[in-house]
């Protein structure tokens, strides 16, 4: 029983990690420009397909995906950053000062365009990618058998969080970014270069999407144009439940949702198990009723999307 509990905990943490990376990507952009970026999920799918050569339906083969890990990881992360930064330069920069709702719908348009672009290039059929099969081998910790991948997911997420925290706390740019997320207008008046701060935020969110993509692929072994959609929805909810503007809150709530999902999957009787997501979202409403500004909110300004 204890063994099971430990295993379930690791399951929940590794699921929560993928959500957390995505929530962080959404939260990052929201905090500096009040944009809820629905394209974040499509960034994840894009990064997965970046490993392949587009050759149409069913015959696309790995290309970048054949590179050794030390080369593959930076290339995919760079591609993710480029894509996110390009979307800022080509689209969102032209919507400065627009309603947050307008920006959100624009991001939905961007995401839809990206998804259909992948459809045009690769066809609708999911494509098998055998990325780093060695990672799926289990290791024994005491009498607990854990897939190596789950440990890697935990470690990489922890590393990303630490790196991001150091960046935000120790670098000039990080300080500018934190200032912007506290009070963007004030920061701007005090000479923080707004466009550059936003561009960097997009770069980071792109890198986070690439990381989430590279951690999901070895688990599922399949690239699908809709692979980011489910993750996005949860991450989006986590960002709000955590308190918009609070990056720590976004990460913690993402883990919380992962934990609740896994717990419900275990605790619910079989007949009620298909309703799992309904329970998760009912809990979300309950939390919002109790703490409308989010569980870990940094400030109490009222905001609108």
């Amino acid at each position: 029983m204890m063994l099971n509990l430990a295993q379930n905990l690791i399951d929940a943490l590794s699921l929560g990690s993928i959500y957390a990376l995505t929530a962080l990507g959404i939260g990052m952009i929201f905090s500096v420009m009040r944009l809820v970026n629905f394209a974040q999920g499509n960034y994840i799918a894009f990064c997965a397909f970046a490993l392949l050569v587009p050759a149409g339906e069913g015959i696309s083969r790995p290309f970048i995906g054949l590179l050794p890990g030390w080369a593959l990881v930076p290339v995919v992360i760079a591609l993710g950053m480029l894509l996110a930064m390009a979307s800022e330069i080509l689209l969102f920069r032209h919507l400065r000062g627009a309603q947050p709702a307008t920006m959100m719908i624009a991001s939905f348009g961007l995401g839809s365009a990206l998804q259909n672009l992948l459809l045009m290039l690769f066809g609708s059929r999911p494509i098998a990618i055998n990325l780093w099969p060695a990672l799926t081998q289990p290791v024994m910790i005491g009498s607990l058998m854990v897939p190596r991948l789950q440990l890697v997911i935990l470690a990489v997420t922890a590393l990303a969080l630490v790196a991001l925290t150091l960046f935000l706390r120790r670098t000039r740019f990080g300080t500018a970014m934190r200032a912007s997320s506290e009070n963007f207008l004030m920061a701007r008046m005090l000479g923080v270069p707004a466009d550059r701060v936003i561009l960097v935020a997009f770069g980071i969110s792109g890198a986070l999407a690439a990381t989430a993509s590279l951690l999901t692929l070895p688990q599922t072994g399949i690239a699908d144009i809709r692979m980011g959609d489910g993750i996005l929805l949860v991450a989006f909810v986590a960002t709000v439940v955590g308190g918009l503007g609070s990056l720590t809150g976004a990460v913690l709530s993402a883990y919380l949702i992962g934990l609740v999902s896994v717990f419900l999957q275990i605790a619910l009787p079989l007949a009620a198990r298909p309703y799992r997501d309904a329970f998760v979202y009912a809990a979300v409403i309950a939390v919002l009723m109790l703490k409308p500004d989010g569980l870990f909110s940094a400030d109490r300004r009222s905001q609108r999307i």
């Binding site: 295993q7 379930n8 699921l15 489910g230 896994v262 799992r276």
Partner: peptide, 20 residues
């Protein structure tokens, strides 16, 4: 018996139940 959804990123908890 257990359920999951096609889009689930991980079915770790379902696996844990089988292993139990």
């Amino acid at each position: 018996e257990d359920t999951f959804k096609n889009g689930d990123t991980s079915i770790a908890s379902q696996i844990t139940r089988i292993k139990a």
